[in-house]
């Protein structure tokens, strides 16, 4: 049984086709990397998966239920969580409250109360290493701390599927390694499937992924196990002229 399945999803904005007949499938606990240059339709694809936009054509299934036209707030309790490319903290609330909101309205929304949410928040914050910031307003965090807080907030939702939009952009190599290690552990423990979107073929992310999808102008040009995907000549093509050859070689 697939966790998430997209069938021929197309999303247009006026004349521009942002996502063009993309199909994909993710199983429970799987790690999928979506790679594509800026403007290749990655963020739009995420927005279709979590319901910010409805696709013009095609269908979206989550645990074999058709969620194509389900509003986003109903998808979160099914177990879909997300982080944003540019972090979007609830700035005036504390880090602890931010993360508690995740727990409160996520997968356990129906059964959890405020106190339990705050307890979960404390645990997740500690695990991700933000304990000393728990009572600070989220607005005053550094950009990297905001990213961490968003990941904590998403994890507090107890998701089955975690969508990460450039979650590691702006981090130092050391921070990225720690983050990858952390995500691996959590994902394994809680059987979370992760879809990580990256603009460049980042060694760390790609190595972690079992499967890689490459988007170019909204079209899926590669969908293959990681090793194969990286040696695919079309991938190199997409990145030619962007100085990505070296990065590719690095991976």
């Amino acid at each position: 049984m697939s966790l998430l399945r997209l069938e021929n999803v197309t999303k247009r904005f006026g004349g521009l086709v942002a996502v063009d007949r993309v199909s994909l499938e993710i199983k429970k606990g799987e790690f999928l990397g979506i790679v594509g240059p800026n403007g290749s339709g990655k963020t739009t694809l995420f927005n279709v998966i979590n319901g910010v936009f409805y696709p013009d054509e095609g269908r979206v299934f989550f645990e074999e239920t058709d969620i194509t036209r389900m509003p986003p707030y109903k998808r979160a309790p099914l177990g879909i969580a997300r982080t944003f490319q540019i972090p979007r903290p609830f700035a005036s609330a504390t880090v602890r409250e931010n993360v508690a909101v995740g727990a409160m309205f996520g997968f356990q929304a129906k059964t959890i109360n405020v106190e339990q949410s705050l307890e979960i928040a404390d645990k997740v914050i500690e695990r991700i290493g933000l304990s000393s910031h728990g009572n600070k307003s989220a607005g005053v965090l550094t950009p990297v701390e905001k990213k961490l807080m968003e990941i904590a907030r998403a994890l507090a939702m107890k998701p089955k599927l975690l969508l990460m939009d450039e979650a590691m952009a702006g981090m130092h190599p050391g921070e990225i390694d720690n983050m990858v290690k952390f995500l691996r552990e959590v994902a394994q423990e809680e059987e979370i499937a992760i879809v990580a979107m990256v603009e460049h073929i980042m060694r760390a992310v790609v190595n972690m992924a079992e499967k890689v999808i490459v988007l170019d102008y909204g079209e899926k040009i590669v969908d293959a196990p990681t090793r194969e995907a990286l040696s695919d000549p079309r991938v190199v093509d997409v990145y030619l002229g962007k100085g990505a050859k070296e990065e590719n070689a690095e991976g």
Binding site: N50, G51, V52, P71, P72, Y73, K74, R75, A76, P77, R82, F84, R88, F90, V101, G102, F105, G106, A109, R153, M157
Partner: peptide
């Protein structure tokens, strides 16, 4: 928008 995505109606 972020609130909606977090599951808030």
């Amino acid at each position: 928008d972020a609130a909606k995505v977090m599951g808030i109606n």
